Amino acid sequence: MYYELYIDVLFLVNFMMDYLLLLAVSRILTCTATHVSIFAGAFMGAISTCAVICIPGHHFLMKFILFHIVINTIMIRAGLKIKERKKFLQAYLLLYICAFFLGGAMQFLGSHVKTAGLFVLIAAISYEVMQGAFWMLAQLRSIQNYRCKVTVYLNGISHTVEALIDTGNQLCDPITKVPVHVLGAEVLPKEWKRQKVQGIRMIPFHSVGKSEGMIPAIFAEKMVVESGKESICIEKPLIGICQEKAVFQGSCQMILNPDIF
């Protein structure tokens, strides 16, 4: 039993796939690589693959090392111009992740493709599908990065809520220009409601469905914002109390002004 292998077809297929993979990794890592360097990296990867396949004999371990370590290293070094060890490891892992996504998309879209023209078209579409998937993952991750946990301290009593850092929240005291953070009235602890608070300020406020209005705001003792492994403490934050539930999204009970960061 034997297989016929057309080395020119093998080279062109590998060159195209290597080019798309290097281009995807370059965009994800925001490398400074140019299309010329990516072209060179893909060319070297494809020609090296053909050379290894032409080695006679069943040298499994040697070919495994050449395919998965040597050739990939050549492609990343030549195509992406990466020298730092940490970034190189990231590119190496991303190369396999992108290959998994791109291969899966191509298998799904082009399982019955038999002509070269359609194969190239399916490869290009698969690349765009993969890029779209990574973009969606990045968007979901960025949304998570805008969520945080906030603990507000008022007269010795603390209260913790889930908050959203809203870049559209430019609310501030019109006189002192201090940023205002909006807290839902329904989540206020009973201990706060029983206390007599002095220094209440009225802040002009508008939201969806309500053109203008005023909300009361008070100066808390401090506010601790925790996001991931980082935490910051804001002294004397100005907290606005909002009665409108529609202002808050999902489980978020507080909207932070980004000017504090």
Rank of each mutant, 00 (worst) to 15 (best):
I7F: 09
I7T: 10
L10T: 08
V13Y: 08
F15K: 13
L22C: 02
L22S: 02
V25N: 05
A33Q: 07
H35R: 10
S37T: 10
I38P: 04
F39V: 11
F39K: 11
A42L: 06
F43I: 07
M44N: 06
G45T: 03
A46N: 02
I47V: 10
S48H: 09
A51N: 11
V52D: 05
I55P: 02
F64A: 12
I65D: 05
L66S: 02
N72F: 00
I74C: 02
A78S: 13
L80H: 09
K81H: 15
K87W: 12
Q90I: 02
Q90K: 09
A91T: 05
Y92N: 03
Y92W: 09
L94W: 08
L94R: 06
L95R: 06
G103K: 05
G104C: 07
Q107I: 11
Q107S: 13
F108C: 15
H112D: 14
V113Q: 05
T115H: 01
G117T: 05
G117R: 04
F119N: 05
A123N: 03
V129W: 09
V129F: 12
Q131R: 13
M136H: 14
L140R: 09
R141T: 08
S142H: 13
R147F: 10
Y153S: 13
Y153A: 12
I157H: 07
S158E: 13
V178H: 11
V180P: 00
H181S: 01
A185C: 08
L188N: 03
P189K: 00
P189H: 01
E191I: 01
K193P: 05
R194K: 14
I200G: 04
R201Y: 01
H206R: 14
E212Q: 10
G213H: 07
G213Q: 07
I215A: 02
F219P: 03
A220Q: 01
K222H: 14
K229I: 14
S231A: 15
C233D: 06
Q243A: 10
K245E: 14
A246T: 13
V247M: 04
Q249I: 08
C252M: 13
D259N: 12
F261Y: 13
